[in-house]
Amino acid sequence: MSDEKELQKVKGVPAPCDIFHDNESVILYLEMPGVTKENLQIRVDKDLLIIDGKKETADIEGKYMIHEIRNNDFHQEYTIDDTIDRNNINAVIKNGIVTLSLGVIESEKPRKIQITAG
């Protein structure tokens, strides 16, 4: 338990994420409210996809009467396999939602095989 807490202090919490998969790509939708383009860092380290988002919090002086928003930064790691094209990873951030699309390599995409009459 204490280890877990220490780990979170360093790295942050994972953002709620939707993972969508179709033939062309794997798309991740990550909810990261308060993260700007400058504070978002996405990198690929061999098989790891590492997403870091620094939450920008407005410092408001005063007494918290309700405090539900956690001020943790976001951190999430995903393992990606060889079917993901490393050169075809795109990320868009809009209104606090990160849309991360990972392209699937050509040979993994389903394809039709042309039949030639013999």
Binding site: P33, E61, K63, Y64, I69, N95, I97
Partner: peptide, 16 residues
């Protein structure tokens, strides 16, 4: 979050 300041109240809401 609901914060009471000296001159105002601030409500912050996460709506991604």
């Amino acid at each position: 979050d609901f914060i009471e300041g000296e001159d105002d109240f601030t409500v912050t809401c996460e709506l991604p």
